[in-house]
Design a protein around this nucleic acid. Sequence first.
DNA 1: AATGAATGAGCGTTCATTCAT
DNA 2: GATGAATGAACGCTCATTCAT
Lengths: 212, 212, 212, 212
Amino acid sequence: MARAPADQKAGNRRCPRKPTSRQIRAQTSRTRIYETAVALIKKNGYDNTSISDICGEAGISTGAFYHYFKSKHEILSELYIRADYFFEDYIAARKKKKNSVEEAKDYMAVYIHFVTLEGLNNGMDMCRNLYTPKNELFAKEGRSMQTLLETLIQRGQEKKEISLKFTPHEWVNFLFAVLRGIVFDWVLRSGVYDIEEYAKFHIECLGNYLSY
Amino acid sequence: MARAPADQKAGNRRCPRKPTSRQIRAQTSRTRIYETAVALIKKNGYDNTSISDICGEAGISTGAFYHYFKSKHEILSELYIRADYFFEDYIAARKKKKNSVEEAKDYMAVYIHFVTLEGLNNGMDMCRNLYTPKNELFAKEGRSMQTLLETLIQRGQEKKEISLKFTPHEWVNFLFAVLRGIVFDWVLRSGVYDIEEYAKFHIECLGNYLSY
Amino acid sequence: MARAPADQKAGNRRCPRKPTSRQIRAQTSRTRIYETAVALIKKNGYDNTSISDICGEAGISTGAFYHYFKSKHEILSELYIRADYFFEDYIAARKKKKNSVEEAKDYMAVYIHFVTLEGLNNGMDMCRNLYTPKNELFAKEGRSMQTLLETLIQRGQEKKEISLKFTPHEWVNFLFAVLRGIVFDWVLRSGVYDIEEYAKFHIECLGNYLSY
Amino acid sequence: MARAPADQKAGNRRCPRKPTSRQIRAQTSRTRIYETAVALIKKNGYDNTSISDICGEAGISTGAFYHYFKSKHEILSELYIRADYFFEDYIAARKKKKNSVEEAKDYMAVYIHFVTLEGLNNGMDMCRNLYTPKNELFAKEGRSMQTLLETLIQRGQEKKEISLKFTPHEWVNFLFAVLRGIVFDWVLRSGVYDIEEYAKFHIECLGNYLSY
DNA sequence: AATGAATGAGCGTTCATTCAT
DNA sequence: GATGAATGAACGCTCATTCAT
């Protein structure tokens, strides 16, 4: 599973099955801090969530927070890393479509669904706080979400199913621009409509672009 | 009314640009504060620009700031109002196209150009700080930028040039979603490419949607 | 009339009947400032009334305020002086009772009425802001309100109508303590009852003290 | 619960005053802040005492202040709570009088003594800042000071020792009006006389009211 | 591993007052 | 007589971070 690495560190070399209560507490604390922090950031935004809010809610001390995280910002970094892993797993679990364009369309629908879903770390409130160009991690090249699609498109071009008028990288940028616009807009209007339904039309059009 | 200035405004045809020296000073100060503030917000973001930064840079006291602006937030409001006026004028100055779809495409190109241009109060840094769903003014229905386009589309539908599959209001939302996505993306990638050029393709596609 | 002196200053030596428009404006401004200030202080309290509130409400500039008053505090001084004059006139206009104790009781009833009445500068909101021991002017010996009563009691003692167990000065302090307690209490409980009615019982008792 | 201190509280009979050094430090700081704050408020008044005055005097940082108190106002709330507790204990420690009226008179004397005494948190300077109708806590129904007296009067009425012309609640309001007037007056005149001596006469009269 | 006391610069905002015009 | 631009210290309060315990 994608989220394992962090936990592995904690100490299962000598005793993989039965961690001491100390280890349990440690894992528990770190996880609890992280999850509380993300929940609060979702609800109130990064700037409006203070360390002390997080600690109060998680029932730990500020010292404990800094024991597990170098800074407040590290919560954000971790969030993105996890989101990528989660997305990878999610996509991997979908069954494949026969056609590259269909696959890309499916991929885009999944992106909307995923970003939108009240799951691991998303939902509208989360988007409201995350969809900011200032969010440096957003732009980071090579995040799974992008690379996965890029690979998909490249294969599609090799199979002559996807237009060559752009490079795979350009296509990805293009498609994500529209996708993010859709999410941005949805959040802007406070999620008053069903974004997945709404996105279908956009995605249909994007599929048309891809194919000729 | 007893005071001279009002009269001057009304009927001083020969000498229209002769306000009292105090008025000049006041206007100068106000403008300097506003421009300094906008420049700093562009550079560092709203939250990272403090009143004291602004005052220091503008060479005035904090008191003076609050003499001219009710609050820090008023800078932002003013920015939007100005942007709207500017945009209106800008659009008004374009010469009309014969076809509604062409007109809408032109409109969208102007939007991209306008938002992007290092002019009155825009440019990439500015967008970086403004393109946030938390930006309440963004979502405000009825801003000129939207209503202008809505009217245009409505006329287009009456002339049977624009598809009726959406209401004008829905069309506007749809088009702006993509447009904002484009800007968002451009900013995300630090403006490394020519957005106007890049947007052409998107706009072309959007034009196609509009027409069938 | 008691309130005249301030106005006399303004300039009716040479032209008592027809002040120039300048003089009218001057009087008007000073009065308007004063009355606006008092109204606002009544409503919101001294500390919560800013010079700029006053000027805004009175339609004048801060400069004008300082032209007529040395400081914000001067409003308060003037208020007390006027209140005393007003009270003096008010008492003078009452018709005399035959007995000193009755007269003192009448005096106390008038005090309650006066302080309570939505008149020159009183009423509950005003009391709320004025009945503070920090209010230095309150304690000032020799204010008409006290001296008038002191004289009355002294005469009563000479006429053997009022007990000699206290000096007139002590009596005044004693009576005012209770009187102020009544007002204080009334304000504390937001004026939910008729203070004049309520005070009657207290005053009756105080009358009994005075006589034996 | 894992932590020691709780246990210590509960069952460390032999060594009840052995909290950890951190707890001592915390308690010391909190107390120092509280006492410094109260002292300054006594001296200069609530509004004229700033957080930074308090912190400077107490030798701690502003942050530390807010670590122990949610706001400046909390100092005041705490003051009242403490005063109530203190008063309750004080009254409880008095030995009972045989007659209800005597008891009520004793109670009133204690009130004057208590409010006046340069003890826990009172004295004249304190009163000066507290005896304001704006002081919301003052008016709060049900503070021990009032309820204690109310109960006492009720019992007195049942024993036919106290007049039934008012309800216990009305009596309490009536008596406190006079009591507060006495204190108010004393403060107004800067405490130049012995208030306890002075109050005796008032209280004697109030006792007479109560009995017939 | 965990605590929480302590820091202190920084925030947006207020406001009585001055003074050149 | 009147203006209002300008001052700047002060306010209550926040908060990421450190570190002795």
